[in-house]
Amino acid sequence: MSLTRLGSAAARRQLDGASRRDSAPAPGVAPYDFPAHVPPTPALAAHTETGTETEKALEQLTQFIPAETITLFIAAVSAREALEGQTWVAWLTSPVLIAIFTLLTPLLLLLAGYATFREGRRKGQAAGSDVSFAIPWFDMCASAVAFAIWSLAVPGLFADASTMQVIAAFAALFVSSLLSQIRRIVGVR
């Protein structure tokens, strides 16, 4: 899944919650109490909340595997291989590359979430409220873990590691699915 989409979903959930708190019913109109199983804005939550009826199984399976970081990581691995033998990139070993991009993943998610939050505030989606951006800690940690495991499946990082790559590929999908279920259990907002 895209980090932008995951970060934006976290920010939209915050903005949506603030909008519901700030909106008061008109005089003489009883407030509608949404049932717990029905999201208040289905168009917003339909493809972002884990466990909704419209969520695709593959999306849930790969929810925390960050597409942007994967794209940058593969480009970096290719560039490193092309520059092999250059002394100025000798420090860029496979573990260093994995560590850099594992740390970059939550930062990109945070940036995407905050950008969406600020954009929503400018558009007045949380007007009149004192809502502030809440760092999506769970999503940031989950995407970093999913990326770190997935990165071990990339060919060319480690010599003679084909068995590890196959195991890592399945482990990344399993861990992402597990994280999706943990998110549902703990009720991360």
Score class of each variant (00 low, 15 high):
M1K: 07
R5N: 14
L6P: 02
S8V: 05
A9G: 08
A11Y: 02
R12Q: 13
R13F: 10
L15F: 02
L15P: 07
L15H: 08
D16T: 12
G17Q: 08
A18K: 07
R20V: 01
R21V: 06
S23C: 12
S23N: 11
A24L: 14
A24W: 00
A26D: 08
A26P: 01
A26T: 00
V29C: 09
A30F: 00
Y32T: 04
Y32Q: 10
D33N: 11
F34T: 02
H37R: 10
H37Y: 15
V38H: 08
P40Y: 03
T41H: 11
A43N: 11
L44F: 08
A45W: 01
T48Q: 10
E49F: 03
G51E: 00
A57Q: 09
E59S: 13
E59R: 07
Q60F: 09
F64S: 04
I65H: 04
A67T: 07
T69S: 12
T71K: 12
A79R: 06
A82E: 01
W88C: 06
V89N: 08
V89R: 02
V89T: 04
T93V: 00
L103V: 11
L104M: 05
T105F: 01
T105L: 05
P106C: 05
L108E: 14
L110D: 01
L110Y: 11
L111T: 13
L111K: 05
T116C: 15
F117I: 04
F117T: 02
R118H: 08
E119Q: 14
E119H: 14
G120D: 09
R121A: 14
A126D: 13
A127F: 10
S129I: 03
V131P: 07
S132N: 13
I135N: 12
I135P: 03
I135V: 14
F138C: 12
F138Q: 10
F138P: 11
S143C: 11
S143H: 04
S143N: 10
A144T: 00
V145C: 09
I149H: 01
A153M: 05
A159I: 10
D160N: 15
T163W: 15
T163Y: 10
A169N: 02
A171D: 00
A172T: 02
L173M: 12
S176G: 13
S177P: 00
S177G: 14
S177C: 05
R183G: 05
I185Y: 08
I185T: 07
V186W: 02
V186R: 10
V188K: 13
V188E: 12
R189P: 00
R189L: 03
